[in-house]
Design a protein around this nucleic acid. Sequence first.
DNA 1: ATAATTTGCGTAAGTAATTACGTAAATTAA
DNA 2: TTAATTTACGTAATTACTTACGCAAATTAT
Lengths: 317, 317
Amino acid sequence: MDFYRTMGYVALGSYMRRLGEISQQASAQIYQMYGMDFEVKWFPVFLAIAENEFETVSKIAEYIGQSHVGVSLMVKEMSKSGFVETQKGITDKRETLVKLTPKGQQMQLRMNELLEDLQDTMTEVKNECETDVLRALMEYEQVILRKGLPERIKARLKTRERNKVKIIHLDPTNDAHRAAFKRINYEWIEKYFKVEPLDMESLENPDTFYINKGGLVLLAEYQGNIVGTSALKPMTADSMELSKMGVDSNAKGLGIGELLGQAIIEEGKRLGLKRLYLETNSRLLPALNLYQKLGFKTVKDFSSPYSRADVAMELWL
Amino acid sequence: MDFYRTMGYVALGSYMRRLGEISQQASAQIYQMYGMDFEVKWFPVFLAIAENEFETVSKIAEYIGQSHVGVSLMVKEMSKSGFVETQKGITDKRETLVKLTPKGQQMQLRMNELLEDLQDTMTEVKNECETDVLRALMEYEQVILRKGLPERIKARLKTRERNKVKIIHLDPTNDAHRAAFKRINYEWIEKYFKVEPLDMESLENPDTFYINKGGLVLLAEYQGNIVGTSALKPMTADSMELSKMGVDSNAKGLGIGELLGQAIIEEGKRLGLKRLYLETNSRLLPALNLYQKLGFKTVKDFSSPYSRADVAMELWL
DNA sequence: ATAATTTGCGTAAGTAATTACGTAAATTAA
DNA sequence: TTAATTTACGTAATTACTTACGCAAATTAT
């Protein structure tokens, strides 16, 4: 059992389960001491019925926080042992109403004695503990109910994975680079628009279209795969056009677009550019948001060789 | 889930188990988020192996606090999934040594990332809680390890049951009383000694032997049954002899002898007696202890009509 | 050296729950 | 009113363990 001590909070869930199981074993012993021929697992169901006669299966289930199936099975068992009896609902014929039999009421009397003693015993235990376990547990429950562990860990996972993304320059001699550049961009263009002649020219020849003209193509590499692209094409002496910004649909959500955008801006500054320009489409909301986040501002009047372009933006470096 | 709030400390065990289960469900989600094709239940076993290569099944079991069977099954599953491999021990051929495969080591890397993030997340949760759940749980474990719940509750159960014992006068017209008086005393006499003529006379005729002579017979009633007897027979004007002190073997441990003894002393005082006298046998240690506890002192020289009597005691009221 | 006990592990069976799924009644929407 | 949805419940299958038991190797006692 050293494990839980070593792991600490990380294994808290397992630790709680184990402690709970140990306690339940103790409960079984206690029932026996009180001469009760009664299964520990019946305890919550039994008390729910004892407290409130003619409860239905699902109400009991909700009250004690178990599945209705579990309650249904236990009611059946307890019924077989003669502690409870069931009848179908009158107003709602789907319901199964459960109540104690005389034997069950007998058991309830004994149970009350046990509970009284257990109450006292637990108070004794509580007093021996410096911290109030129950309060701590209830508080913990509230905290993870407010925001669950998966939700909490999500942000950390994202930044961790994001840090694994490397931004590299497209190498025209690398076939994998050229293939990924084509694949990723064809994917989004075909999904939302139609492939235009200029798309084909640029995607097939990144070297002559971008790099040899003084521009560049950046790729995002993640887990050995190329999962994002972006390109800069010279316009004037101190301005270039950003385009072919695409992220593999399997790698969405990691913020790869933002990483590429930031890298492009860095490259622009490094090249001594004054202005970055881009054209996009108003339907591409995530893209628009990204460009805005990066600092691009909408340009009113423009003309474009691409028929899909209905928005233009620029960023002064 | 209102149940646990209503029951408080009494349902602490079940509550811990439920919370633990909820946490483990969250863990399953988290593993999926990290793209790990890994079962939650493997977690402790896997970490044990990762920490210490070539662990044996039972050492892992002890470390993580589960049965060796469980570990054995999990190792088998993990082996099938390719995360670990096993080999028989060299020095001890019964042992099964377990170590990570290359695939398992790969998983360990990812696991370490997860653990790091989980660590941070749990620290976050911990900081949101006023009380330290883990510390509270560990303290609770220590407290119930020092003295378990069944042991703690035992004393309370005993006093509760003891309070249900009623001391009544034998009613010579009540056949059940007469039968119980015979049964209980024949039981112990036959077990340790031989029934003597005086026994038969007194047990068959409690009225003429005790009551009509100014003495009395007290019975202990528990749950509708007579479970203990004791009798006073006049000796002189202000002293009587205590005898036929017996407790049903099914009702031992409730302190019924003590209750009877105390009642006898009360009766003696009520009757204005100065001295109670009794004869017993040195083999009956529990009885000797009881008489001592009640205040009786050994008498040196005496003679008795019973052959089994080798100790005599008296109590001055 | 032999016998008895302990230890390590695995198979089989059992347990206390669950999820998946189906049926029928009740409720709501069209 | 009919259709669609929700609710209440139960059966069957699954899960994550456990205990019971047995075998064989190792250790201890005689």
